[in-house]
Design a protein around this nucleic acid. Structure first.
Length: 648
DNA sequence: GCAAGGTC
């Protein structure tokens, strides 16, 4: 009996179909597996990491466990996927041979090693092999199975150490902050190697915006032949003086050219999430993409690759859409000849995200269709011809310039219509001609602070700093929202976030910097290459953390964070305050529990309350009711809006 | 109840 272990069900099925002709789909403990009677072979897909490290149970109580105890603790292995482990053990018990066919990367090696350790408990002497393939194609898979090797223990250990280091740092600093600020239970304050540097980026951007001093500058415009030419000035007097001195302008140069505009690159996870975040939060977009993948509409959504592999039959995929809602787009692409664009990142694990089947609007939910349509349009756009613009540039004397842009061939823009082409018009000019100035004006402008991150731009920045992976970045961002560290999109940090980052900067600044990830990556490579021992890496963290625990002033830490929490509370109060309570003089607030209502800040001492309508968006206006002296509220519903005094 | 990383 032969057992093959893959990383997930999808690859297990694929491997089974490639290797064997007589594949039967079976189910045990609600877990799929595949059986070939003639080869007496079973193929089982895991669910990624089926176990995880944790601290022993006796250290679970945060209040009662000294943090130093976590440093000395032994890690215990906790089963996360009981049914998968159960099935794995049942199948492994009678195996004579086990082949590990998990993904060909660091985590895959570790997942494989975990499976082996479990298997050896029930079947100690079993023969174990490892196969590696970069793509789930018949050629690659067959070649790998013809040349089995053994597990790369060092590579697996490097991943193992990362799990431990992350848990150690995360748990100790999370507990330290939460205990110091007395925020326990579901209000705990999390800290981590990826989330904290990401949060620091957001906080620092907000600081830049707060401290930004905008400068004025002056755009001078002159109207000639019906259009405005522009020149920028630092000083208003200068702009005025120049404008006063001119009544005609000579054309110094005029250029008309056709410029090609590149088409977008194929979707990898980051690019996809950046675009999808125009419609929804990244974690939701990812969940929907996952669904569409499971239902067979799109390819695997977790990929770094931005280059279509040669094995992908692009033409066939386009032709698939000839009888669909995207018929016109598909015809357009085929008419002009397929010419795929390519991004800078090329990997061999998965192709860029692309459609794999035709869907119609009524078989998908609204959100699913939004994502599916995005993937299809992007896919077709990457194969379509480039867009062409006619660009005119004119330069006058005195440094006045104007530009015109006209889209003369839409190309990919015809398909990928998520941004409007911005056109502007200027007429033709002749070099040397002198034009009468028809109008002059000056516009005062302000320099702008850097803009806030959006979920889309943040994911890109995280990628460029090496923070997180394609599979985790969206979850990290969600975590920051869940912890009430950030809100809105564009993203703003709460006062709590400022406080947490400040507290960490004083106690454990490394954990707020991307360098920590970079260093860990270097250590992992060294472990994988056998240059250092994984125990030394772990020990380094233990030493570092114990030094932090010795020197930390918990009271100070607590007061920094509490201040932030207090500030958030005050701001929240200010936002929801509508006036004073007619019974006790306290502050009347819009409160949101299960229902929204008007309540008093002195609750439970004062029980004054008034109901509010539950439907529609509630806005506090600046108008005040003459009778009650409280703010007028506005309800905005889809088709109507109305205002009222909550006490009238 | 802690992290980040796989996967659903």
């Amino acid at each position: 009996m032969w057992l093959i272990v893959a990383e997930k069900d999808k690859s297990a099925r694929r491997i089974a179909r490639i290797l064997f002709k007589d594949v039967k789909v079976l189910k045990k403990n609600q877990v799929n597996y595949y059986f070939s009677p003639s080869n007496k072979a079973f193929v089982l897909g895991l669910k990624g990491h089926i176990v995880e490290y944790d601290f022993p149970e006796e250290l679970n109580n945060w209040r009662r466990t000294p943090l130093e105890a976590l440093l000395k603790a032994k890690f215990v292995v906790k089963v996360k996927e009981k049914n998968v482990v159960k099935t794995l053990l049942e199948l492994a018990k009678d195996a004579e041979r086990v082949t590990i066919a998990t993904d060909y990367d660091r985590e895959g090696e570790f997942i494989g090693l975990t499976a082996v350790k479990l298997i050896q408990k029930v079947n100690p002497g079993v023969k174990i092999e490892r196969v590696r393939f970069s793509a789930l194609t018949p050629v690659d898979v067959r070649r790998a199975f013809e040349n089995p090797t053994s597990l790369d223990l060092n590579l697996a250990k490097s991943a193992e150490v990362r799990h431990k280091v992350d848990l150690l740092w995360g748990a100790i600093l999370t507990r330290l902050l939460s205990l110091s600020a007395n925020r326990l239970g579901r209000d705990f304050l999390s800290v981590g190697r990826v989330q904290s540097p990401t949060l620091r980026l957001i906080v620092e951007r907000e600081e830049q915006i707060k401290s930004f001093k905008s400068k004025y500058y002056y755009n001078a415009f002159v109207k000639v032949r019906g259009i405005y030419a522009k020149r920028k000035f630092e000083k208003e007097e200068e702009a005025k003086a120049v404008l006063e001195s001119i009544n005609t302008l000579k054309v110094l140069s005029f250029k008309k050219s056709v410029v090609e505009e590149k088409k977008p690159i194929p979707f990898n996870t980051t690019e996809f999430l950046k675009e999808a975040s125009k419609f929804m939060k990244p974690d939701k977009a990812m969940a929907i993409a996952e669904n569409l993948y499971m239902e067979g509409y799109i390819s695997y959504p977790r990929t770094d690759n931005t280059v279509y592999p040669k094995t992908l039959n692009l033409k066939k995929l386009v032709e698939m859409f000839l009888s669909s809602d995207f018929k016109d787009h598909a015809e357009f692409v085929l008419k002009h000849g397929i010419e795929p664009s390519r991004g800078r990142k090329e990997t061999s694990d998965h192709p860029p995200i692309h459609p794999t089947a035709v869907a119609s609007k009524d078989e998908l939910s609204k959100d699913e269709w939004t994502i599916y349509e995005l993937v299809v349009k992007r896919f077709l756009a990457t194969l379509a011809p480039k867009a062409k613009w006619e660009v005119k540039r004119v330069e006058f004397e005195q440094g006045f310039k104007a530009m015109g842009k006209k889209l003369i061939f839409a190309g990919w823009r015809l398909i990928y219509d998520y941004s409007k082409p911005e056109e502007s018009y200027i007429p033709d000019f002749k070099v040397g001609e002198v034009l009468v100035v028809e109008e002059k004006k000056i516009k005062k402008e302000k320099t702008k602070p850097p803009s806030r991150y959006t979920t889309g731009t943040l994911i890109k920045v995280m990628e460029s700093l090496g923070l997180g992976t394609k599979s985790t970045r969206h979850e990290i961002i969600k975590k920051l929202y869940d912890r009430k560290y950030i809100y809105g999109n564009p993203i703003r940090p709460t006062n709590l976030a400022f406080a947490v980052i400040n507290a960490l900067k004083e106690t454990a600044e490394v954990v707020t910097l991307p360098d920590m990830t970079a260093k860990l990556e270097r250590d992992m490579t060294a472990i994988a290459e056998g240059r250092i021992d994984e125990k030394d890496v772990l020990k380094e963290s233990v030493v570092f953390l114990s030094r932090i625990l010795k020197s930390v002033d918990r009271e100070r830490l607590g007061s920094i964070i509490k201040e932030g929490i207090e500030k958030d509370r005050e701001e929240e109060m200010e936002k929801n305050a509508i006036g004073s309570c007619p019974e006790c003089g306290g502050v009347l607030l819009v409160k949101r529990a299960n229902k929204r209502f008007i309540g008093c800040s002195n609750y439970p001492k004062c029980k004054f309350s008034r109901p509010l309508p539950q439907k529609g968006r509630l806005v506090t206006t600046s108008k005040v009711c003459e009778k009650h002296g409280v703010k007028i509220l506005r309800i905005v519903e889809k088709d109507r809006k109305w205002e009222f005094c909550p006490l009238c």
